[in-house]
Structures are given as C-alpha cells and as structure tokens.
C-alpha cells in the first residue's frame, strides 16, 4: 500500500511539473492575446507610437514575447523569478512579504473553516431531513448567496464603523500581540470562512448521505449500529474521497481568489498582486503568481487524491 502511494506521489510530482509548464504556456498565450503591452499601458493616455517604441527599447521589450517568456522559464528553472516590467524590482522582492500574508490568512481561515464545515456537513447528514438539516442548508446557501463584497462591507459597517470594536483596515505591519492578531484577522477570516465553507458543508453532506444508502451501510444498520456510529464508522470513510476533493477545491480559492477581501480590508496579499500584474501586462509577475496558484492547487488536489486512495480499501 505504501509503495502504491509512493509511486503515485512520484508520478504526480512528474506530472505536476508538466502541468506547471502547460499552465505557464497557457498564461503566456492568454497574456499576449490581451491588447496592449507594458509600454503602452504604463504610458496610458499619453502613449504615442514614438513614445511607446522608445520606452519599449529602454525596457528591453523589443525581443519577441515568446523569447522573453522562454528566457524567464529558463531563469525559473534556476530559481530566478525574473524582474518586474512595471517597476524594475525583482519579482521575488515584490512577492515575498505578500505571499507570506496570503499564506497566513489562508492558514487561519482553513484552521477555522475546515473543522466547522465538516462538523456541520456530517451532522446534517446524520439527521437528514430534520429541521436541523434544513436550517443548515438554508443558512449555508443563504450566506453563500450574498456576494463576498457585501459580507465584507457589512462586517466593516457593523464592527468598525458603528460598534468600533475592530479596525476597518488590516495593517499586518502593526501586529505584535495575540490580541492584535485577533483584531486584524477577525473580519477577513470571517468573510472568507463564509465564502469557502458552503462547498465543503454541502458536499460533505451529500457524499455521506449517498454512502448511507449503500448496501454495506444498510447491513450495518440491520446489525443495530447507532446512527452516529453508522455515519462515523461506516459511511464517512467511504465518502472521504469526494469530501477531501471538495475541501481541496475550496481551499485553493484562498490562494488566488481573495481579491475582494484584500481590497476591502487593504490586506496586501498576492491576489491583488496578480490583478495588478495583469493590468500592466507584467509577464514575469503574472507568470510567477500563476505558478504559485497552480502549485498550491496541485498540492491540494494531490493530497486529496492520496487521502481518497488511502480511505478506500478497494483503491489501494
């Protein structure tokens, strides 16, 4: 069994590299498809053909885009992320602190959202059709139906403007004590928990309910197992594959999808960085961000696949 997992992991590592290259090319072509290049966009309204040509030469953007991209790819292979077109700073320096911020926010959110969502999903499945189940469903869908920017803005209005309990902006550079962390992260984490939990809750519930109607669980029921025991011992292990996949999909959102939270709480993370990079057609920066998102996503789903195989004896 361990051998199987090891070979799968090795296999996945190789394929992940290929996927990264594919994504990298796809992002490159997508970027070149967009009208405008860094020079025209930096000059903006004042871009005249001569000015653009001059700036392009000065920024060494005259080489064909594909050559510049391959050059960047070679650099990446040697661990060099390249230099941003927009402000001539090393990409690593631009990303550094912001990537750490993104990871912090993602980790705190995951630590709260995953246990919460799994508990709600499993208990809802346990008492399927009950008032509790219906309430969980309505609340979950009701909350996920509210656009993220509305949740975030409402939170700021209530907790920062009217009650004045929390700061409206999340200045990470002013965090020194545990109390500060609580204050700074409370609203971003709350908003994101609302956003990512729904998928986990709903999918967990659905997967467990489906497993409950399989013959061997019905068999266990006939043997007189209690409901919680039935769910936790028999149904849950068999539903684990879809559940971990739902968790992986939800958590991957926390890397690149938190643009609204970053904007409203002025939290410097890499989602905003990516949006900026696209806006200025800053290829090295776009690519590096895309690689980070892709790598994060691949890591999450590979873990999910491994867990799924481990959980199903027939797949081992």
């Amino acid at each position: 069994m361990n051998k199987r997992i090891l070979s799968l992991a090795a296999n996945r590592l190789a394929i992940a590299l290929i996927t990264l290259v594919i994504v990298s090319f796809a992002v490159f072509f997508a970027t070149t498809l967009l009208p405008g290049d860094t020079a025209t966009i930096l000059l903006g309204q004042s871009a005249t053909p001569e000015a653009v040509a001059g700036l392009r030469t000065a920024m060494h953007l005259d080489d064909p885009a594909i050559l510049r991209f391959l050059h960047w790819l070679m650099g990446l292979a040697q661990g060099d992320l390249g230099t941003s077109y927009a402000n001539n700073m090393p990409v690593a320096a631009l990303i550094g602190g912001r990537f750490v911020n993104t990871l912090k926010l993602a980790a705190i959110t995951a630590a709260i959202a995953v246990p919460l969502a799994l508990t709600l999903g499993i208990t809802a499945a346990m008492w399927r059709g009950s008032v509790y189940d219906r309430a969980v469903t309505i609340l979950t869908i009701g909350i996920i139906s509210v656009p993220e920017f509305m949740i975030a803005t409402s939170a700021v209005l209530i907790f920062a403007v009217y009650l004045k309990w929390l700061p409206a902006l999340s200045f990470t550079n002013e965090v020194s004590t545990f109390y500060d962390i609580l204050r700074v992260y409370a609203m971003p984490v709350l908003t994101l928990t609302f956003v990512v939990s729904a998928q986990m809750i709903r999918m967990t519930r659905a997967a467990v309910v489906e497993t409950l109607s399989t013959p061997y669980v019905e068999m266990a029921l006939l043997k007189g197992a209690s409901r919680p025991r039935l769910v936790l011992r028999h149904a849950l292990p068999n539903a684990l594959g879809p559940i971990v996949n739902a968790v992986a999909l939800s958590l991957s959102y926390l890397l690149g999808g938190v643009i609204i939270v970053e904007t409203i709480f002025n939290y410097p993370g890499i989602a905003k960085l990516m949006v900026d990079a696209v806006a200025t057609r800053d290829l090295p920066l776009i690519q590096t961000c895309a690689m980070i998102f892709c790598l994060g996503y691949l890591t999450l789903i590979t873990l999910a696949d491994i867990l799924a195989i481990l959980s199903n004896p027939r797949l081992r």
């Binding site: 004045k164 409206a168 902006l169 904007t263």
Partner: peptide, 9 residues
Amino acid sequence: NARVNALLS
C-alpha cells in the same frame, strides 16, 4: 465604501 468606512472608523 471601504475608503469612507476606514475614515469613519
């Protein structure tokens, strides 16, 4: 809105 809220808070 966030800008106004940051001032108000």
